[in-house]
Simulated scan of single mutants.
Amino acid sequence: MATGFVKKDKQRDSWYYEATLGVDENGKRIRKKKRFETKKEAQQALADLLSAANKGDYVEPSLVLYKDYLTDWLNSKKISVRESTWKSYSDWVRLHTIPALGDLEISKITPQRVEKFMLELSRNNYAGSTIQKIYTIIKDSLNKAERWQMVSKNVVDLVDRPKAVKEEMQVWDNEQSLTFLKQAKTDRLYVAFLLALTTGMRQGEILGLRWKDVDLEKGILYVKQTLSHDGQKFSPLPKTAAGRRSITIPSEVIHDLKKHKSMVTDEKRACGQSYTDNNLVVCTTLGTPQSPRNLNRTYQRLLKRVDVPKIRFHDLRHTHATLLLVQGVNPKVVSERLGHATIKITLDTYTHVLPSLQKDVAEEFGKSFFKSTVNE
């Protein structure tokens, strides 16, 4: 049975406890000693320690450095998350978490150190969503450390999750969208921007789209795979995921896709055996995957030539969704086109559109409801 006592150190004007927790595998007694500023703190800490030891819940604090532990944690994550997600985790750990906390022994990480780290990120103007993700990584990693009995408890449970202020979404209206497409019309990558604005597909989905997944007769695109952010790997979308979907396209887009397919066919014929046929809708002149970086570079170049608000490529997807909602399209349909897991995600993302929709609905309802009264 674990035993211990609390005593005052008159020379240091502090209190400490000493505890005997049993014996190790070599028969040597396991003793612990820790100092505190007050008698009450020492008594409480000793009571917690003895209770855990007598229940068999005591965990010897690990001397492993957090940066070494995070390397193992990241390796274990590879089998449970998508490659793009793992890459993001790895970047956040390498660029932020390890520089701030990596040299600490995992058992020496305190709530105060974690909270200070969160505040430093905020002062350096990192987005609230980014800070939340870093917070989640630390919490998840220490949850596993607790399960592995490397620490007695997860100290992040004592740190409030940082709040994220939702940034105002930047989108184009109908006229601005058409103005940009007119400028991009003669560019070889025009069809990528056209698809972004008329289907709401993500960049990786556009760059992963194959001709065999395009039915030009019926006017339907089938989203089945995505290209990684580094442009090196295609990943099939799970059959059960909302992301694997079909999207109908208007006749104008069908017309432009047919012209683009003819151009790609001519390029393939001109290259001969040097052409790598990946059956991609958007690709290089050699048939290889189009680099997301090059696509973004082209997008930025075109933006400079036209008088429209400067928005991100990803905001073309938001523009598509916003235009649909303003036109009165059912949010459920919008959600399905975007590949959202639930309609709630769609409604939460595009709350800026809802007030104007509510006004339009109220006016239309009023006209219909009071029609008979007006005619009397």
Rank of each mutant, 00 (worst) to 15 (best):
T248H: 14
D160W: 01
N174A: 14
V171E: 03
E267H: 02
E205Y: 05
K33L: 07
C271A: 15
V114P: 00
L189N: 10
T3M: 07
F5W: 09
T373K: 13
I220N: 11
R269F: 05
K259E: 12
Q232T: 13
T285L: 04
G200F: 08
T276K: 14
G204Y: 00
D13A: 14
D348S: 12
A53G: 08
D157I: 09
K55S: 14
T110F: 00
T342Q: 04
E217Y: 11
D103I: 05
Y135F: 15
K185S: 14
V156F: 02
K371M: 07
I220T: 15
R147S: 02
I134T: 02
A45D: 03
I345P: 00
R82C: 01
D72F: 02
K233R: 15
I137T: 04
V214T: 10
H229Q: 15
A192D: 03
N278Q: 10
E267T: 02
K258P: 02
V223N: 06
D173W: 00
Q176C: 12
D140V: 05
F193M: 01
A145P: 05
S107V: 12
L74R: 05
Q11I: 11
K224F: 03
D91G: 04
M118K: 15
R317V: 14
T349L: 10
I131N: 05
R244G: 03
I249L: 01
F117G: 12
V114I: 14
Q11V: 09
V282T: 00
G22R: 10
Q183L: 02
S122M: 12
L121K: 02
V23D: 03
N294H: 00
T342L: 04
I109D: 04
K8I: 08
I137S: 12
D215Q: 12
R337D: 11
D187W: 06
Q273M: 09
R301V: 03
R161D: 01
S90Q: 10
Q112R: 13
D9E: 06
V155N: 08
Y89T: 02
L21R: 09
L207A: 09
T284G: 07
K371W: 00
I247W: 06
L325V: 06
D215T: 11
L347P: 02
R301P: 00
I206K: 07
W148F: 10
K268Y: 00
T248P: 09
T248Q: 07
V282S: 00
T373P: 07
P250M: 11
P289H: 05
K310I: 07
S51D: 11
W92S: 15
Q273V: 13
T38Y: 04
Q290D: 00
V353R: 06
E41G: 08
A362E: 03
L257H: 05
T38H: 06
L178Q: 06
L357K: 09
